[in-house]
């Protein structure tokens, strides 16, 4: 359902943002290869727990998100200090949005599509996970249903990712004006795109943007849970996930 109709004129800016998106299959294969390599190094008997495996997937997905960001238009013009501040601020929202849009495309309410391309029954996850994780997964599914109902498409997601990344509310940015300018441009591009592509749905832009606070709330809950699990020693250490968690909360 998220395949968007051919718009009469695609705003060039949206095309630019879409062009920054990585090839999903390439990302998937990279992550699968990495997890397989890790597992072969661990030996057959040492089976990671479901949660530990999810952490490894999330960690590798985060690597791909950083790779996407650093190759993005506008972002590569920033100094590394500002790049780090922006990513520290929105890494968990980008991770959650990546997961949720995958479920929107998957279109199944009873199962979850993982970044590795594997499909897992929701009932299995809910039977394995304890209450907080279950509620997180459920909330993610509910947001996916709402976005699917909005017929969110890939181009809109590309814009939303930029809106999350270029957040002018991040403190102590060296080039605050630049970030504000990008936020404004992307808002304009998304508005123009939704009005020209979905003329029958004039409110689509505001309906999409209103989902961002929900996304932030969900990602904050996910961070809290990750923090709790990390303190209980459940999260594999020395990875990007934990560094970003600490950086955001420092």
């Amino acid at each position: 359902p998220s395949a968007s109709p051919q718009p009469p004129s695609l705003p060039p800016q949206v095309l630019e943002l879409l062009r920054c998106d990585p090839d999903e299959l390439v990302v998937q294969n990279k992550i699968v290869a990495h997890l397989q390599q890790e597992q072969s190094g661990r030996g057959r008997l040492d089976k990671p727990s479901t949660f530990s495996l999810m952490c490894r997937m999330a960690d590798q997905t985060l690597f791909s998100i950083v790779e996407w960001a650093r190759s993005c238009i506008f972002f590569k013009e920033l100094r590394v200090g500002d790049q780090m501040k922006l990513l520290h601020n929105c890494w968990s929202e980008l991770l959650v949005l990546d997961h949720i849009f995958r479920q929107v495309q998957h279109g199944q309410e009873d199962s979850i599509l993982l970044v590795t391309g594997q499909e897992v029954e929701l009932s299995f996850i809910l039977s394995q996970a304890e209450a907080t994780l279950s509620s997180l997964v459920q909330r993610g599914q509910e947001l996916a249903v709402r976005l699917r109902a909005l017929q969110v498409d890939r181009r809109e997601i590309a814009c939303l990712k930029f809106l999350l990344l270029f957040n002018p509310n991040v403190k102590l940015l060296e080039d605050q004006a630049f970030v504000e300018g990008v936020q404004e441009q992307v808002n304009g591009a998304l508005l123009e795109y939704t009005l020209s592509t979905y003329p029958q749905f004039q409110e689509k832009f505001s309906q999409l943007v209103v989902r961002l606070p929900e996304l932030r709330s969900l990602s904050t809950q996910a961070e809290d849970y990750l923090c709790y699990m990390h303190l209980s020693g459940e999260v594999p250490c020395n990875n990007l996930l934990i560094e970003m968690l600490h950086a955001k909360r420092a």
Binding site: F63, V66, E67, R70, S71, V80, Q83, M84, L87, H88, N239, L240, E243, M244, A247
Partner: peptide, 18 residues
């Protein structure tokens, strides 16, 4: 004690396609 360089910083500063 020098602070361990951030993994994120290393990734952002790594040459493209490294």
């Amino acid at each position: 004690e020098p602070e361990e360089p951030s993994l994120l910083k290393k990734l952002l500063l790594a040459p493209a396609n490294s």
